[in-house]
Every structure is written in structure tokens, then in C-alpha cells.
């Protein structure tokens, strides 16, 4: 059987939940950021797959992907700036160390 939409959807779903799992279990903020990148990529894949197989004549899914990539780049840059600032203040980028505001 020729792989099609459903195969790609499987990959993207799996990738999404791998990312979610990583987000749940990694203590390191950079690792959590990587998990988020995985989730965003699975979404991109989804958009491309639907664009390719359901509305092949259109370009909207593709543009969404491009914009998501741009936003992801901006988000990563800001997130890393925050992480470095946090590291400066607490000498740690453990997510559990940033809990001063609890209760």
C-alpha cells in the first residue's frame, strides 16, 4: 500500500505525544523547550499533509507552516533569553527551581 495521509497523520500524532511526554518528564528547561519544538513540528507536518492530500491546489497550509516556523524561531529566541536570565539568577535551569511564586 502506498503511504498516504493517514500514515503521515500517524507520524505527526506520535511526534506530538512524544513531545508532550517529553514536556511532562524532562526537568531541564532547555529539554522542555526541545519538546515544544517537537510539538510544533508535528503540527507543521499536519498542516503540510492536509495541504498535500486534501487541498492540493491551495497554499494555505503551507503558509501556516511557514508562519509557524517563523513564530517558533521567535519563541525559541525569547525562551532562551529567559532561560539564560533565570540561570543567571538561580544558577540552575531546573524547572523546579523557578517556583518562587507558588502558594
Amino acid at each position: 500500500m502506498q503511504p498516504g495521509l493517514y500514515h503521515i497523520l500517524f507520524i505527526s500524532t506520535a511526534l506530538f505525544f512524544i513531545g508532550v511526554f517529553g514536556f511532562f518528564t524532562r526537568k531541564n528547561l532547555i529539554n522542555m523547550l526541545m519538546s515544544i519544538e517537537l510539538i510544533l513540528n508535528s503540527v507543521n507536518l499536519n498542516f503540510i499533509a492536509f495541504n498535500k492530500y486534501v487541498w492540493p491546489g491551495k497554499l494555505d497550509g503551507l503558509f501556516f507552516t511557514i508562519f509557524i516556523i517563523a513564530i517558533a524561531a521567535a519563541e525559541t529566541a525569547v525562551a532562551i533569553a529567559i532561560i539564560i536570565n533565570l540561570y543567571r539568577n538561580t544558577q540552575s535551569i531546573d524547572v523546579e527551581s523557578a517556583e518562587d511564586l507558588k502558594y
Binding site: 503521515i8 498535500k52 524561531a73 532562551i80
Partner: peptide, 25 residues
């Protein structure tokens, strides 16, 4: 799936940009 442009963007931005940034940090 023959989307060469988006593949190129993926490699340039993600592989060449974001991952490098992450490794820096």
C-alpha cells in the same frame, strides 16, 4: 511529499537556526 521549499525552510531555520541556538544555550 514533494514540498521542496518547505523542506528547505525546515532545514535552514530549524536545523541551521533553532537547534544551533539551543546548543549554544
Amino acid at each position: 511529499i514533494d514540498y521542496e521549499f518547505i523542506a528547505a525552510v525546515q532545514i535552514v531555520v530549524y536545523v541551521g537556526g533553532i537547534v544551533v541556538l539551543i546548543i549554544f544555550s
